[in-house]
């Protein structure tokens, strides 16, 4: 009985191909330093060596690859790309490290980070006080908020200012879902549907299964700009910073990364990356505990 599966396993393995999840490894790219276009933040001295790396000479940045425009996979090239990926690539270059981008599920990303398998988790994480008990966070790399994603014909609707009686949806486990569930009574929506990912949630919105999707503001704007059937509506709520996460106790590594982020803000390269992915520049708070009272996410030319 065993002979059959053994033969099969040997047959398929003999055909070649390496293992699995071999992470994407990228050699440091040439550094580009666009002209500074926004007020420089405090700049620290260039970093000489980084302590506490999982592997010497490498910056291992775990990513989900399923949260555009922050991290996504390009179907044509097969490469990870996005706002946080570009920042990680630039940071690795400036730190003189080889970038490795293992692609994992979000739960495994955080678990692997806490176990010390990765240096950084990059999926645009809101450094809430609860999360700060479990992870160290970099200085913010952007601010964002929560906004209602709607069908294009509802672009003039009130968004979260009035969702009473509507069917709303969100992505399971996200901050945007949490906002809906924690404010159910106040918002007065009719029903809630949680989806496994953005792809499914957006299809449900287009098909009319839900009327409003609770989305990250930057993601929602990106979707609206790339899909004429969809739009954003109403005010931004709960504006907050997004950061990179580190294992607790890795202050030296986090500080080295923060120094690079500060450099990138000061010399305008972060603004250039924002321009590339969001089409506008977004304010970057200095403090991870910042809770900005934005009604709309302030943006401007870089």
């Amino acid at each position: 009985m065993i002979a059959i599966p053994v033969a099969f396993a040997l047959a398929v393995t003999a055909c070649g191909s390496d293992d699995d999840a071999s992470p994407t490894t990228e050699a440091p790219a040439a550094t580009e330093a666009p002209a500074a276009t926004e007020a420089p933040a405090a700049t620290e001295a260039p970093v000489e060596g980084v302590s506490g790396l999982v592997e010497d000479g490498k910056l291992i940045v775990a990513t989900t690859g399923n949260f555009p425009p922050f991290t996504a996979i390009n179907p044509d090239s097969g490469e990870n790309e996005g706002y946080t990926i570009d920042i990680a690539r630039e940071a690795a270059t400036r730190l003189g490290l080889e970038l490795e981008l293992p692609t994992v599920d979000f739960v495994a990303e955080l678990e692997g980070l806490s176990q010390g398998l990765y240096d950084i988790a990059d999926s645009g994480i809101w450094p809430t006080p609860e999360r700060q008990e479990s992870f160290l966070f970099s200085r913010p790399m952007t601010s964002t908020g929560i906004i209602a994603q709607v069908r294009a014909e509802d672009a003039d609707s009130a968004g979260f200012a009035d969702v009473s009686g509507l069917n709303v949806g969100g992505i399971q486990g996200s901050s945007q879902e949490k906002y809906l569930l924690e404010n159910e009574a106040e918002l007065g929506y009719s029903s809630y549907l949680g989806f496994a990912g953005a792809g499914e949630a957006l299809i449900a919105l287009k098909q009319g299964r839900v009327d409003v999707l609770s989305q990250d503001s930057l993601v929602a704007s990106f979707v609206a700009a790339n899909d004429e059937e969809l739009a954003t509506a109403g005010p931004t709520v709960l504006a907050h910073p997004l950061s990179f996460a580190f294992q607790l106790g890795n202050e030296a590594k986090r500080d080295a990364f923060d120094a690079v982020l500060n450099e990138m803000i000061a010399d305008g390269s972060l603004a250039a990356i924002q321009q590339a992915w969001f089409g506008v520049c977004i304010p970057v708070p200095a403090d991870i505990d910042a809770q900005e009272p934005y009604d709309i996410l302030p943006t401007g030319d870089c």
Binding site: N66, P68, A72, I73, P75, A196, G197, G199, D227
Partner: peptide, 15 residues
């Protein structure tokens, strides 16, 4: 499945 879900969410073409 993992790669498909990643592609589905990256391209917004899950179906």
């Amino acid at each position: 499945t993992g790669k498909s879900r990643q592609l589905a969410n990256s391209t917004f073409k899950p179906i």
